[in-house]
Design a protein around this nucleic acid. Structure first.
Lengths: 243, 243
DNA sequence: CCAAAAGTGTTTGTAATACACCCATGG
DNA sequence: CCATGGGTGTATTACAAACACTTTTGG
């Protein structure tokens, strides 16, 4: 037997509920991943909100009245890093009633990918509460941010095999070794050099720049760049990235 | 150069923002998928909200103050179908400013899977505004529900290859043909009968019930059921469902 | 000429694909 | 005995995995 006791709904119920207590603050939290050729890092902020003073938290903010969530996330990212046009993907929304000490705050998690450079490390100096922490070193975060963080790491690992987003963590020009390192570090696996290179050649998404590394005291590696147009064309024809 | 102009944030800003205009109504929308041995269907509700009167919409409701979003979705599902313990997965949150005619409503989409039977078809009779529509027949929905719906269909198709959720759309006892049909219909592909069966045998997740179909005017098919424990054990050992 | 990392092919095993006939039941 | 869908095996091909030596550069 079905209950189906919702036949009495109507617009007025909605209007009155929307305008009374059926409201919540809405926020975004961004897991900003950066890669510095050796470690996957995440930008964290030392919290000053009781009872989490001193703990690190993800960077986030309330969703402003004139923004949708994507725009809020973009703004948070810009305010914290100065970067625009950064890769951002929504992951999940977290809504447990007591997740925030100041009241009901529903938050939507995003992760984003940035190439770490000196400019970005400088933000640690400009605001000592901001830190690029190694992902492998994360322990206890403020609020429910451990759960949010874990979800985003999982999503990143999933997507990395699924979509050509790894390139967003590397400089425009990179060697195949750098790329392989990235996959090994982020996914915590080991890859066979020759098989990895054969696979990438088969994917046919990289441009050989006919340039070499310089200033290395060993044989310099050839440099490549990722060709987004080539990928887009292939994708439209039914090609699926997989690595 | 980074801007990093957020160093002036503090708790009081948050408290005042949370308690003033920085609030939104929060809702869930459920894409309830049902399978009737031939068609993938979705439960839709004829809307009475201007300017969408007569258009069909997903079933949803506001998130109540004492609920998190998962609980809201479960409640919506129960109120509409009378079912508890139904598979539900959060898909994405939609937040465009003008997405709802009554004001700012941020909605989180879920999809769920139910086995269609006479009981469930009865809800169409009890509330003539509810309809189990064929997924393949969906055209224009109310609000931004086409986008939400498309996202959920995509997620379902993705998950179906990835996790053993197809069984949730079938009766407890099913034939291999029924299972194959499900995959073919939902994913809109054709599968080779022998290869499909070999693959399922290799996965080793089904229990041979030593029962046959009855009341068919041809050779009766053997019946199987899915063994969730077996799957859980294998999953823990690193096994990944893939089909 | 030495150290360090770049670059390159072949073999072997495993999984995906393609494909056609006999079987059991009800009418 | 006929119609209907159920059930089964093999050969071929493509992809994944394992593996070691030569090359280029800087110091």
């Amino acid at each position: 037997m079905t209950t189906n006791n919702k036949t009495n709904e109507n617009i007025n119920t909605w209007i009155s509920q929307i305008n009374t207590e059926f409201k919540a603050a809405v926020s975004v939290d961004c897991v900003i991943f950066g890669y510095d050729e050796n470690h996957l890092r995440v930008l964290l902020l030392e919290s000053d909100m009781p009872p989490f003073e001193g703990k690190y938290s993800l960077v986030g903010d309330l969703c402003h009245p004139h923004e949708n969530l994507d725009e809020s996330a973009k703004r948070v990212l810009f305010e914290r890093t100065g970067l625009k046009d950064v890769f951002l993907e929504q992951v999940k929304t977290f809504s447990d009633i007591d997740r925030h000490p100041l009241g009901r705050v529903i938050t939507t998690a995003y992760y984003s990918l940035v190439k770490l450079n000196e400019n970005l490390f400088r933000i640690e100096k400009e605001n000592p509460k901001l830190k690029w922490k190694k992902v492998s070193s994360i322990t206890e975060l403020a609020f429910d941010h451990n759960v949010i963080f874990d979800n985003c790491v999982k999503q990143l690992r999933y997507r990395l095999r699924d979509k050509p987003i790894g390139f967003k963590l590397l400089p425009k020009k990179f060697s195949l070794k750098q790329l392989q390192n990235l996959y090994e570090k982020v996914l915590d696996i080991e890859l066979d050099k020759r098989n990895f290179r054969r696979k990438l050649k088969a994917l046919d998404l990289l441009v050989d720049l006919n340039e070499n590394q310089s200033d290395v005291n060993h044989r310099p590696a050839k440099l490549y760049s990722f060709d987004p147009e080539k990928y887009e064309n292939k994708r439209k024809k039914g090609f699926n990235f997989e690595l």
